[in-house]
């Protein structure tokens, strides 16, 4: 187990380094570079030269990269001149709100998807399975913004059940004070996630159902419910642990669109605004943080998986 963790940790460090390298390359290939982005399209050549010199952008690329890494290690993610604030400060205000949205959506999705997927697996190729599969495919094939507008049209415009705009608090505490406003963004993100998780849980249940120990349990006279609860459930849940770690980037992508539709003041909305404003510092700072979070997440998922399932460690 120990050597597994060490090996996996080494891999994660390598991947994080590669993530920083990719983001750094993107930073370098941006049209005109940072100077052009900050000083504007009409800046003179000498002004750009002065800026580049002052910021060390005329030094060898490898030195620039090391300097940049040094800054990141000190939690200096760059400076947004559009907001006139450091990216890390901006991230500190929007990240908790996005975590609330994504976390709630994911939690609810797991609570719904696990039993649904298991029922589908247990009753595979029956009418119920086909109907649920069809529904899942529809949600899963729906662009998030289409789902969002349908929910707004139905729940906000026609029936006035929930407001169409998310709460506009500056902090999580303020956002939480208006739970009704949170319903629609969470519902939207949850629905597309449920589809993904349930499909996965279904195939994972199918994999477990053909195992020898399930046949043994049946042979000993256990009923369907007992077998599902005691023998299938936990084992089928294992791959879902990995899925949770892996689905993080997908959820972030979903959150960008969801936050934009409902004007939810989180990371996704700020990222989208930054893309419109060509605010590279935010774009790359957020990309970097998400990348590192994902690597950490999948590392945690793998270690959890190995702890739960000894067979994995051998590979």
């Amino acid at each position: 187990m120990f050597s597994f963790i060490v090996r996996r940790l080494g891999q994660a460090v390598a991947v994080v380094l590669l993530v920083t390298l990719i983001v750094f390359i993107l930073l370098k290939v941006l049209p005109g570079g940072t100077a052009r982005a900050l000083l504007g399209p009409r800046a003179s050549t000498s002004a750009i030269k002065t800026f580049n010199h002052a910021n060390g952008f005329d030094r060898p690329v490898i030195i620039q990269y090391l300097n940049w890494i040094w800054k990141i290690l000190h939690w200096n993610l760059g400076y947004s001149y559009k907001y006139n604030q450091p990216v890390s400060t901006l991230l500190g205000t929007v990240l908790p709100k996005s975590l609330l949205l994504v976390g709630m959506a994911m939690l609810l999705a797991i609570i719904i998807a696990v039993p649904v997927g298991m029922v589908q697996g247990a009753r595979r190729n029956r009418v119920l399975d086909h109907v649920i599969t069809g529904l899942e495919l529809v949600f899963y094939s729906m662009p998030v913004f289409f789902l969002g507008i349908l929910l707004i049209l139905y729940l906000s415009v026609d029936h006035h059940v929930f407001p169409s705009e998310a709460p506009q608090g500056a902090t999580v505490a303020q956002v939480i004070q208006d739970p009704r406003g949170l319903v629609m963004p969470i519902l939207t993100l949850m629905l597309i996630t449920v589809a993904l998780f349930a499909r996965y849980m279904r195939s994972s249940t199918l994999d477990v159902l053909v195992q020898d120990y399930v046949r043994t349990a049946r042979a000993k006279g256990n009923g369907q419910t007992g077998v599902l609860r005691h023998h299938v459930f936990r084992n089928a849940l294992l791959p879902v642990v990995t899925l949770i770690g892996l689905s993080f980037p997908t959820l972030v992508s979903g959150a960008i669109v969801t936050e934009t539709i409902f004007n939810y003041p989180g990371m996704g909305l700020m990222f989208w605004t930054a893309a419109q404003n060509r605010d590279y510092a935010i774009l790359l700072g957020f990309t970097l943080v998400t990348g590192i979070a994902t690597v950490t997440g999948s590392l945690a998922a793998d270690i959890a998986y190995a702890a739960l399932d000894p067979r994995v460690r051998v590979h």
Partner: peptide, 13 residues
Amino acid sequence: AVLALPALLLLLV
């Protein structure tokens, strides 16, 4: 590493 970056973020950039 590339998989760790959300596709939509990369596409936007």
